[in-house]
Write a protein that binds this DNA or RNA. Structure first.
Lengths: 195, 195
DNA sequence: CAAGATACTTACCAAGTGGTAAGATGTCAA
DNA sequence: TTGACATCTTACCACTTGGTAAGTATCTTG
């Protein structure tokens, strides 16, 4: 029964780090969320940094699976891209947490990026650029630098996702839902997806 | 000479909050940056929250000025939009800090947002949507929901800006510069800007 | 000049931080 | 059965956190 304490710690760390950031989360918070002493946490993850590292690694794996999922979903590059970005707009649970973590990393890592985990986004970005290139070759996407095009879509989607709570307050939940639908339509158009 | 201590505190708070976030910044850090005791800070800003509020207010004013600047720069809506987004891509100094703060707010405020913080983004967004609507009427932008279109552009630009340090590490500084140029070209195209 | 107000200072404080030390309890193979 | 290992606990620790109290020095103004 206690076997999965480590797993539970990791899950709750992911939740708290993505919600409150590295500095906004104490290892005590994480331990308390699992109903375990702080030192139990420190047994599994010898330092806060290590814990955070493990969370990032989990996020990286999630992104890897995500890409694999997309590739499995279709053999057409534009549909793979659509799968990814559309899923992001609907992201919930862990996928949503990963997006939040991802952006926090962009904001926070300036210095930390030098050392340890090279950059956990790099392979993901690379895969997306490849998809865009392929989609362009197949005439499903407009011309232009693939990286730029990809980053525009990625940025638009991610920014929209992290805006969700704010936009729901600013407008109504219903209105936000309409905007999301509108984002999805725009996405389809950019990727030349019919249906 | 000491008259502007408050101003200096505010400036340094803006810098540190945008760089390290609310939790990542202690009032001691801010005070030390101005070479003043922590209690001097607490004299001018009675609590950390108040200080942060003052920083947000300053950022809000900056955004207001930014919109005014854009409107002054041209009487064509598409050129106003171009002014804003293009400036954002080149953002340095305070303007860059404001962008970072803005995104941190999106991430962090989930709870705090209930209260008074709607104002922070709302007027800015509203102004941008108006510009997009006008630009569409004048045939300078594609059809589609104005808010959606605006948010895509805003998201793409802001995401790119916060990615800068990371992208410069991932690629070279030169390569990043090329990508930025490419982003700018794409922007021009979307806004039907010649020259 | 007297009387405030303004702009600070040093001295504290309770609570929380990440982390160490030392041990208790259980698990499991030799 | 024994001894090594993993898992977790209670006690601590030095340090930092946001914030209060109380005073000092300077500036302004009637």
């Amino acid at each position: 029964m206690k076997k999965n304490t480590k797993e539970k710690l990791l899950e709750n760390a992911e939740l708290l780090f993505s919600k409150n950031g590295f500095y906004g989360t104490s290892i005590n918070d994480v331990a308390k969320a699992v109903n375990v002493s702080k030192q139990a946490l420190l047994h599994h993850f010898p330092s806060k940094e290590k814990l955070y590292g493990a969370v990032l690694e989990k996020a990286t794996n999630h992104l890897g699976d995500f890409v694999a999922e997309a590739i499995r979903s279709s053999d057409q590059a534009n549909e793979q891209l659509h799968y990814i970005f559309n899923s992001m707009l609907d992201a919930q649970g862990q996928r949503l947490l990963v997006i939040l973590l991802l952006i926090r990393e962009l904001l926070d890592n300036r210095d930390r990026i030098e050392n340890a985990h090279k950059w956990y986004l790099a392979p993901f970005i690379e895969a997306l650029v490849d998809m865009v290139s392929t989609a362009q070759e197949q005439g499903d996407m407009q011309e232009g630098d693939a990286f730029t095009l990809m980053y525009q879509m990625l940025g638009a989607v991610q920014y929209f996702v992290i805006s969700q709570p704010t936009l729901e307050k600013l407008f109504s939940e219903q209105e936000f839902s309409n905007y999301k639908q509108s984002q999805k339509s725009a996405l389809k158009q950019q990727l030349n997806i019919k249906s």
